[in-house]
Design a protein around this nucleic acid. Sequence first.
DNA 1: ACAAAAGTGTTTGGTATACACCCATGT
DNA 2: ACATGGGTGTATACCAAACACTTTTGT
Lengths: 213, 213
Amino acid sequence: MSVDCVIFTVRDKKLNVLLAPRPFEPRKGEWSLLGGFVGAQETLDEAAQRVLRELTGLDNIYMEQVGAFGSIDRDPFVRVISVAYCALIQWSEDVEATIENHNGHWADITELPPVCFDHPIIIQRTLANLRGKVLHEPVVFNMLPELFTLTQLQVLIEQILGQPVDKRNFRRRVSENPSIERTELIDKLTSRRGASLYRFNPEALGYSSKFKI
Amino acid sequence: MSVDCVIFTVRDKKLNVLLAPRPFEPRKGEWSLLGGFVGAQETLDEAAQRVLRELTGLDNIYMEQVGAFGSIDRDPFVRVISVAYCALIQWSEDVEATIENHNGHWADITELPPVCFDHPIIIQRTLANLRGKVLHEPVVFNMLPELFTLTQLQVLIEQILGQPVDKRNFRRRVSENPSIERTELIDKLTSRRGASLYRFNPEALGYSSKFKI
DNA sequence: ACAAAAGTGTTTGGTATACACCCATGT
DNA sequence: ACATGGGTGTATACCAAACACTTTTGT
């Protein structure tokens, strides 16, 4: 019984997934998702959080279960059932260091290397899952810094959906979403003109109103 | 490692879920979902199909995984992780007999009796799942006979959604859905006037068109 | 001056909703 | 005759999509 984490981040304007060489047999050394076994006193959610923490140093991360995968061919001797979790993290130098200690490598999801077992299927299902909810649930903010520009947000959503998004319609929808608040701050790093920085404030969602981008 | 089946059917115009007294300790005798352990040579999907077959006599049934549930408190001694499956079946006298041999009982989902462990959560999550897709995927036909009237279909959907549906809008949407074909046959059992019988024909969905009701 | 990203409204077509009466038939 | 469920159309409000130019500023 194991958990496998499909860890997404946005890096250099591309959606990436974290892979690592499999640390033991069978298929030792082949690319695989980051996983671990479930302890006897852990819930599945706890196990997933722990695995993520051990391999990235991150804690308190957004994770959601995707499903259980029980293909038989995984290991010829031991039956392994794996529960997949989707994690969204913010890329940073800090994390990068911890990840490298565990031989983790980011792979652009549009050009994945060969991955072992049924992990390609798990990645695809997780991505489909994410695509289905990115516009209806406030999950993307887990991949962005506290303050972000609308272009950053748009590019990220385009990466997840795998298709372009109309800029004006996008910005109108954002402006109608009370939980995405414009701050007085201006980011001058990415453009000459400078772009307003925004913040996600979950409190600002009214009682009945649903999140929507 | 077990699978639990959340088996829905429509009976007497109500959405029902199948429960059975738990056959062994702990909590022997309390209401529970129908479950079983996963064999060493089975996939999860196969295990779910087998459990369903053993307990209802039905084969080749629509089933979909809902997720894995790993709460610890389930059994104080053995760690059990359960993968839940949603099954939609057509109610019939035949099935009823097999079910009774296994002490199965239908429970109206609007007035569930106390159910053991985390099974109430599993039922609610499965139902939420079903609600989310009933209008976008052709799943309801698994709960209806080959030929059905539009009122049957409407009542079923209302039961699943837990709210009424506008009759004229509903019938317009159905008429726009090429996969729901009107036959020449008339059902005279449920009304004096008689109602046209319809059939679901998955082939009739065009290439790009999505199912929608 | 120009390159590079930020920012900004309107029109149009489609889709979802609300709503009430007549029809056919068995009893 | 009447009770029961079957069947039908329109008007309106809302939402989604398409679309192109001006602004700011660092170099």
